[in-house]
Amino acid sequence: MTVETVLSTHGLVMRFGGITATNNVTMELKRGARHALIGPNGAGKTTLINLLTGVLVPTEGRISLLGEDITTLAPHKRVARGLVRTFQINQLFDSMTPLETLALVVSQHQGIASQWWRPLGASKAVTERAAQLLEQFHLGDVAQQQTRFMAYGKRRLLEIAIALACEPRVLLLDEPVAGVPAGEREELLQTVAALPADVSVLLIEHDMDLVFSFSDRMTVLVNGTLLTEGDPETIANDPKVKEVYLGHGEHAHV
């Protein structure tokens, strides 16, 4: 593993009884990468992400983050080391506003969450960081609105803002545009494209337009196995990839 590799797997295997969901997957995420993980439904993408984030412990193989073996490390400890994930389905506090949510997350990251009883804004550093995130993710106009009343695209933006509030070294973006109406997608796509260059991103996504516009490298999974890996042009012209997607009625995207 080179110093430029921030996250890697080696010989990763995940078995559920007699089913092998992840089959000897070895891959590397480079520093500052925009790396997409794609594959048809049932390819094993979610299982792999659950292994990377510690939701699952692999049957075999190992995972390294910034040169450290994290194979059996608890999920919250991986977050503390800079590995942060967004989820395909929103996991937000409906009764809180974006400002309150981000202030809470920033406070927790700065180690002062135990002082939750202090008035919002008591810490200048927390207030400034929350305001910066609200502006960066185009949430200023809904900063004081309860999350439950926000448009779905804005909720997705808030979720990514929460992830960035944890100051990740590696960000796993799990289908960021899933369920977002067409009219709300452009703002989200622009925000994803403008993520900080020093954050290495692994994108899991079915939207091939986003995948090809965002990624500088792509990994293709099929039946839990790494089919191929390369830059977007190589993947787009790979006969094996075309065959896989043709077989699943998705040839228009590849």
Rank of each mutant, 00 (worst) to 15 (best):
M1D: 14
M1V: 14
E4M: 11
T5S: 11
T5K: 06
L7H: 08
S8D: 09
S8F: 05
T9G: 07
R15Q: 13
R15F: 07
G17S: 14
G18N: 13
I19S: 09
I19C: 09
T20A: 04
T20F: 06
T22R: 01
N23H: 11
M27K: 02
R31T: 12
R34H: 04
H35C: 05
L37Y: 08
L37G: 06
G44A: 07
K45L: 13
T46D: 13
T46Q: 12
T47R: 08
L48G: 03
L48V: 09
N50Q: 13
N50W: 14
L52F: 13
G54A: 08
V55F: 14
V57R: 15
P58K: 08
E60L: 10
R62D: 14
S64P: 00
L65M: 11
L66P: 01
T72E: 15
T72Q: 15
L73E: 14
H76K: 09
R78F: 07
R78E: 06
V79F: 11
A80E: 15
A80Y: 03
G82V: 08
L83D: 07
L83H: 11
L83W: 12
P98F: 06
E100Q: 10
T101S: 13
T101I: 04
L104P: 00
S107R: 10
Q110H: 15
I112V: 13
A113N: 01
Q115F: 12
W116N: 03
W116T: 04
R118F: 12
A122P: 08
S123K: 09
T127N: 14
T127Y: 14
A130N: 02
A131Y: 08
L134P: 06
L134G: 05
E135H: 11
E135M: 05
F137I: 03
H138W: 02
G140H: 05
D141L: 10
V142K: 05
V142L: 02
A143M: 10
Q146E: 13
T147H: 05
R148D: 08
M150L: 12
Y152E: 02
Y152K: 01
K154P: 06
R156C: 06
L158T: 08
A163R: 13
L164S: 06
R169W: 10
D174I: 12
E175L: 02
P176W: 07
V177Y: 01
V177A: 09
V180D: 03
L189E: 14
Q190W: 10
A193W: 07
A193G: 02
L195K: 03
P196L: 02
P196R: 02
D198G: 00
D198T: 11
S200I: 09
E205Y: 00
D207N: 03
L210I: 05
V211H: 01
V211A: 02
M218I: 15
V220I: 04
V222S: 08
G224W: 07
T228H: 10
E229L: 04
P232R: 01
P232E: 04
E233L: 06
E233F: 01
E233S: 04
E233P: 00
E233A: 09
E233W: 01
I235C: 00
I235F: 00
A236N: 00
N237R: 03
P239H: 00
K240S: 12
K242P: 01
V244H: 01
L246S: 13
H248W: 04
H253Q: 12
